[in-house]
Design a protein around this nucleic acid. Structure first.
Lengths: 134, 134
DNA sequence: GTGCGCATTGACTTTTACGTAAATGTCGCT
DNA sequence: AGCGACATTTACGTAAAAGTCAATGCGCAC
């Protein structure tokens, strides 16, 4: 009995680099790091939609400021959630820590966005002043 | 005529490292990078409250993911907003870009927080299952 | 089959943001 | 004057995340 998933689209490496605005080096790097596992035909990589999805998540993690190690860990959790109670509890504690960190980060962003609005307004005012004299 | 600000508190480097949970190396590094300018008595640094405030902002920028160069630039803007119209317009464009980036980042964080909630819930369910058998 | 262009690989390099170690200075106390 | 506790300076180290470069391979259009 064979799994059949022939209808999944294949993506080439350059397609994905274009879609996500990253270099081929980056995607190969992620593969080296064990984050994605594109198939091969000869030496050429063929990416499944699952890889594409993973890449999306990796990039999101990157934007948030997660390290490769952290991202790998997260992916691992999705692939095989820990079964043992101690492991589970440990994981939940770390989740809690991460959550705190992210909430702080969100607050930081919000404060910064507000300040940026102020600066922008000041700029507009200043521009208007100058503009009058022009 | 002399400016008098004798009542400002001085902070030692270790006070600040303790308050902010960073190393002395980090604060000296920020000074080397021209982000802060503590005074000196002999070779010893004495930090004013303005430095302390700056450090707070620097660390916030760091948490958000700004590079030292970006942080320096932001500080610069606060110190002397550009006077010329072209400069102003350029700055506003870059502000706009940054804003977009930050908003994306905030969305990333929110998505991640949601997913974390899901994972956490799954963990709890799993724990309950195991717990029953224990 | 030859040339073209994209792919791949491996090795080396770079940048950022500090860490770390060693040697030396400084200050208050006794 | 000497001690201990911090501070400073200089210089080298390092980890993460790619960038860059050179050599080579593969497929296919002509």
């Amino acid at each position: 009995m064979q799994m059949r998933h022939g209808l999944d689209k294949y993506y080439t490496i350059t397609e994905l680099t274009r879609e996500f605005g990253v270099s081929t080096r980056t995607l190969r790097f992620y593969e080296d790091e064990g984050l994605i596992h594109p198939e091969r035909r000869g030496r050429t990589r063929f990416f499944r939609s699952t890889d594409r999805h993973l890449i999306k998540e990796i990039l999101r993690g990157r934007r948030i400021g997660f390290s490769i190690a952290e991202i790998r860990e997260i992916i691992q959790i999705y692939k095989e959630p820990p079964g043992e109670a101690g492991q589970l509890r440990l994981m939940m504690k770390r989740l809690e820590d991460k959550r705190t960190e992210l909430i702080q980060k969100r607050r930081d962003i919000e404060e910064t966005l507000e300040e940026m609005s102020n600066v922008e307004e000041a700029c507009l005012t200043r521009l208007a002043e100058i503009g009058v004299g022009t």
